[in-house]
């Protein structure tokens, strides 16, 4: 596939952005190759209610890794 782009004047007055987050891109200029990837993970097992009152040291989060 062949394509030709002819760019004339490009001017913007005001840009106001609240957030540029989790591997996103805000570019004012030219670019050639862009690859953005983001992994987000909150499975139900990551919401633990009262996982036992053993103190911090013995608290192994293995059950989280097995069925993650």
């Amino acid at each position: 596939m062949y394509y030709t782009v002819n760019n004339w004047n490009l001017g913007v007055g005001n840009i106001s952005i609240v957030g540029v987050s989790s591997s996103s891109l805000f570019i004012v200029g030219d670019s050639h190759e862009i690859q953005l990837s983001s992994l987000f993970d909150t499975p139900p097992e990551s919401f633990i209610v009262g996982s036992g009152t053993i103190n911090r040291e013995e608290e192994i989060i293995d059950h989280d890794a097995t069925n993650d």
């Binding site: 007055g13 005001n14 840009i15 952005i17 609240v18 957030g19 591997s23 996103s24």
Partner: peptide, 16 residues
């Protein structure tokens, strides 16, 4: 571009 106002850039994001 005359004015740019970005509140937050976070978690491996890019403003160029």
């Amino acid at each position: 571009v005359s004015n740019i106002d970005v509140t937050a850039i976070s978690t491996s994001a890019i403003t160029q």
